[in-house]
């Protein structure tokens, strides 16, 4: 039975320049997004065709999520949020093909994305609001003697945001793919176990059900990542309101 974590191995494809299978799938995912979007918008019409309607649904979905969380002001972050959503969604879904590498199951990737989001929040917050941005860490209506503790806890809570953002996506993808691989391994192991081979369809059914669940998780985690990005961006736009 193959090791369930073997699928996450990073192998260099071109020696010397560090182009790995992870890089290959990232480039492929971006090419898929850009190609798909260009194809969908190649001849824009007022009454959209199928591809254009799909692209418009994606656009309106992300735009609606963003404006719900941040108001119309937040639309200046739309390119960032839409890119993040499409990148995470596409790579989650691409990783579901058997034998394909799941880029988002590596915490270095998800943490880099989360650090990008929090970096944007911090930089934009300070540029836009100056030291007023630090009011994010000082809740009102707190007794003075409690304030130092609360501020430290709020700072730690803020530092934990990129960690929880990246951890959630990474843990979901990792756990799902390991579970799929384990049940897939059970099928093979039972199939070669003599009389017990009659039981081998059972883990196969489980693997099929898990695949459906993984499709749900792939979409849901991309959505959760986007929603939390919007909520954090809202803190940069309106601290202390």
């Amino acid at each position: 039975m193959a090791s369930p974590i073997e699928q996450f191995t990073i192998k260099p494809l071109i020696p010397g320049i560090g182009f790995t299978n992870s890089s290959l799938f990232m480039v492929g995912g971006v090419a898929l997004i850009v190609g798909g979007m260009l194809y969908a918008t190649r001849n824009r019409s007022l009454v959209p065709g199928r591809a254009q309607a799909g692209a418009e649904i994606l656009h309106d979905f992300v735009a609606g999520t963003l404006t719900d969380a941040t108001g119309r002001e937040g639309m200046k972050f739309f390119p960032l949020v839409f890119s993040l959503f499409m990148f995470v969604l596409t790579l989650n879904l691409v990783g579901l093909f058997p034998g394909f590498f799941t880029v988002t199951s590596h915490i270095v990737i998800t943490f880099a994305l989360a650090a990008l989001v929090i970096g944007t929040v911090v930089v934009y917050g300070f540029v836009r609001h100056g030291t007023h941005f630090l009011g994010l860490f000082v809740p009102s209506g707190v007794p003075v003697w409690l304030l130092p503790f609360i501020v430290v806890i709020e700072v730690i809570s803020f530092v934990s945001r990129p960690i929880s953002l990246s951890l959630r996506l990474f843990a979901n993808m990792l756990a799902g793919h390991i579970a799929l691989k384990v049940f897939g391994g059970f099928v093979v192991a039972l199939g070669g176990a003599g009389v017990l081979a009659v039981l081998s369809p059972l883990p196969l059914l489980m693997a099929i059900a898990l695949t459906a669940l993984e499709f749900l998780v792939a979409g849901l985690q991309a959505y959760v990542f986007t929603v939390l990005t919007c909520i954090y961006l809202n803190d940069a736009l309106h601290p202390g309101h």
Binding site: V159, S164, N172
Partner: peptide, 24 residues
């Protein structure tokens, strides 16, 4: 099925707080 998502989400929040405190 979204209970699983909720569990993942909440546990990630808690673990992230402890990790961030320890790191700091």
């Amino acid at each position: 099925p979204s209970a699983l998502g909720l569990a993942f989400r909440l546990s990630a929040e808690f673990v992230a707080g402890v990790l961030a405190g320890g790191l700091l």
